[in-house]
Design a protein around this nucleic acid. Sequence first.
DNA 1: GTCTATACGTGGATAGAC
DNA 2: GTCTATCCACGTATAGAC
Lengths: 203, 203
Amino acid sequence: MLWEPVMAKESAEVTRQRILQQCLPLFADAGFDRVSMRQVAAATELTTAALYYHFPDKEQLFLAVVEDCFSQRVVPLLPDPQTSEPDPWLRLEAFISAFVALLVNVPSFQRLMQWLALDRDETRAHQMTERLFEPFFRSVADLLPVTLSDEERHMLTVSVMGLMVFPFETQVARQWLPGYQPPAEATAQLVKHILKLLKAGVM
Amino acid sequence: MLWEPVMAKESAEVTRQRILQQCLPLFADAGFDRVSMRQVAAATELTTAALYYHFPDKEQLFLAVVEDCFSQRVVPLLPDPQTSEPDPWLRLEAFISAFVALLVNVPSFQRLMQWLALDRDETRAHQMTERLFEPFFRSVADLLPVTLSDEERHMLTVSVMGLMVFPFETQVARQWLPGYQPPAEATAQLVKHILKLLKAGVM
DNA sequence: GTCTATACGTGGATAGAC
DNA sequence: GTCTATCCACGTATAGAC
């Protein structure tokens, strides 16, 4: 009888994780506003009341989904300065290749970030930046040449991220335009294109 | 008495335009779902019923706002192959400079595009691409060197657009990071940064 | 922990008068 | 053309039983 409360607690944690996993694609596809708690309940095969046992409200559920996705998918990707490639250029190559692969393989992650970027709530944005985005941003910035000023490094970091992310953000709108290749089927070309641009420009 | 129907028709057109102008910032800030017809009514000092006289439903109102904003702001910006700078590189410079200026001066336009990119409705996306996005995309593509293949040209066009747009898309999240400068106050640096990157790379 | 049942607000949209 | 008044669907969230 003594282990019962422990079992119960563990089971709650399992359910919580299951909820986070299963409603990630919902939020990623449709965004916060177009996903109802009823839909989440249907997807997880629970009732809305059960959801409110695990999360205080819809917003906290959503934020938990974001945090969970980010730490599962992105954090393991960040290059460890200890063990990684010593050549800075090869290190950047490896990271860009890995991150683009993530965008291809986990479309939910990419969409979720895209929704998040539109959030105007300052408090929430600050919290997200501090806990999730900043470590990521610093890791990318650390891959760049040491000679840059703070401002230059910041701008270049944004450019590198933009070159990777923007093709995915604009997929839907571009699919009917001449020369379009789906990122998923032209990953290698995309990576090569970005690296060439960074190395030597294109004009 | 004969001119009365004409007057009435004109007045309706004026009201329609006023509605489009006045609810642009609402949709740009909050997105389609977080703007109610009641809010639009308040902003335009009309009633919801009056709005439904001018537009069949909320979606058509939103799409009209997008079309109006795009043709007002972007179309006049597209370089005319006839009259513009003959040197291809200077032509690209001029366009990038003008487009970044647009993003700074009309934040509503930038936000609206960002919301639009998340729309998953294929029909709507196709229509938007055909009527608005494609002419714009072609204009940018035409600024690039003639030697590129279709696929290369497409990828490079996306990269150029991403380098311009992504800094604005990520403003909110980046404001607490080292080296951050608001795009509005560092427009010149941003343009120079992009041009340098395109011309010669950075690594 | 999960259920049934329900309270309560808000949103899109329309009818019909003026 | 614009109004007042209203319908109805759907959303979040909770109370209370099991």
